[in-house]
Computed example of a mutant assay.
Amino acid sequence: MMLSLSSADVSREERFDWFADLVGRAISPTEIIHDRSGDFAADASVLGLGPVQLSSFSYTPLRSRRTPGLIRRGDPEQYHLAVVTGSPMWISQQGSESGLVTGAMVLWDTSRPYESGARDDGSPVRSTILQIPKTDIGHTLSNRIDRLLARPLQVDSGIGAVLAQYLSSLAVHGDELAADDRGRLGRIATDLFTSLMAQHLDTAARLPPESLADTLRARITHFIDENLGDPALTPRTVAARHNISLRRLHQLFEGRSESVAATIRHRRLGRCHSDLTDPRLRHLPVYAVAARWGFASAAAFNRSFRHAYGITPTQLRRQSGA
């Protein structure tokens, strides 16, 4: 489950200390520096994704640093990749400084000292941080990844855009995920992270074929999730959007629990099931729920739903009281 916290639940005098303690536990032991003459506010959420963690923060601009002493006190031995929005922030590590970053990503290593800060332009800093154990990163990348520390990485195209959107979606919908789904989605996040690092290091050609296939499959799965409401979403359109042949697409899903078409159908049915049991959506007729998630035929939807769940959509809604 996702843990959500807010400084609004803490007395004004304790908010800064509360946030400093939270950062130390959720990220790593860190010295936090803030001019206490003004009000301090922060919100946070933490989502476990197997060995991977996703932490989202919104906070009044401040400065922080991680010293050798703090590293000795506690080191999760992770790479942290932050998608930064809101007030621009900077970070310096290993002789590199990012400059002011917003609308982009930045990477740091918890095992090395760093300093960071933010420009106070009247809005909070917002960051979604992917925390990946170093042991999950292959040697080909880990031996060279230092050159990417404290460097802005763009999110407006390519794998960077896919990863940023993926993390944003997880941060929004994390509380809806089952435990098994969280572990699987964490592996996808790791694959996308690895591909992004490889792209920036020009080592994609050295990655093993299975890693490249996993990354492409992760991109395709994310694309499917983002386009379930489009009735034109089919294996052929998925292949075309990823510049691969239909045959190559089917090869990517060979040996998996579901084919591409079955994946689309299963995920659409899952969204419909969730909507039909949501009291807030009781005003929507069953056929409207089906259409909302890409089912063009009400009859085909009813057959698929009954085959998957053993009852009709109407029976489910009646049983759930929605």
Rank of each mutant, 00 (worst) to 15 (best):
L148F: 03
Q251C: 15
A291P: 09
A218R: 06
Y114F: 05
L62M: 09
S98Q: 08
L276T: 06
V52F: 07
T190F: 03
D43P: 09
S195Q: 11
V83L: 02
R318P: 10
T237N: 08
A104Y: 01
A189H: 02
L141M: 01
V52M: 04
G122R: 05
S304N: 14
R271Y: 05
W90Y: 13
T314W: 13
R219E: 11
L100I: 12
A20H: 00
G321F: 09
R65L: 07
R112C: 09
Y79R: 02
L107T: 03
G86N: 00
R36E: 06
S297F: 03
A150T: 01
G86S: 00
G24V: 04
N302A: 14
M1I: 14
P29F: 03
E97R: 14
G138N: 04
A288F: 14
G38Q: 12
P279G: 07
R292N: 11
P279H: 12
S98T: 05
Y79V: 05
P209E: 09
A26F: 11
S7I: 05
P133A: 05
L249F: 02
Q94K: 13
Y59E: 07
N243D: 15
G99K: 10
A218D: 02
I145E: 01
E14L: 12
P279L: 15
F253T: 06
T190A: 11
P152H: 00
R12W: 14
M197P: 02
P51R: 11
H307L: 15
H242I: 09
A164L: 03
V84G: 05
P113R: 03
R280E: 15
A189P: 01
T30A: 09
D202C: 15
L3T: 12
T215M: 05
P208G: 03
G310Q: 08
N143L: 15
Y287C: 14
G310H: 07
L212V: 08
R126K: 13
H139T: 15
T194V: 08
A164P: 04
A262P: 00
E176Q: 12
T102N: 10
E13C: 06
S45Y: 07
D202Y: 10
L212A: 13
R318W: 13
D275C: 11
Q251I: 14
T277L: 11
S259V: 04
D230M: 11
A161W: 07
S157L: 10
P88C: 03
D9M: 15
H222G: 13
R256D: 11
L276H: 01
T102G: 06
L281H: 11
S142C: 08
S4T: 12
P209Y: 02
P29K: 00
P76S: 00
F193W: 01
S58D: 04
G38R: 15
E14H: 07
L130F: 05
G310L: 10
T67V: 04
R187L: 10
L212E: 01
V23M: 06
R219N: 04
L22D: 01
I132D: 02
D278K: 06
L276F: 05
P231D: 09
S6V: 04
Q154I: 10
V162F: 03
R112N: 05
T85K: 02
R63D: 15
L163K: 01
H242G: 12
Y59G: 08
H250M: 13
E31I: 09
L62T: 08
H266R: 12
V23Y: 01
A150K: 04
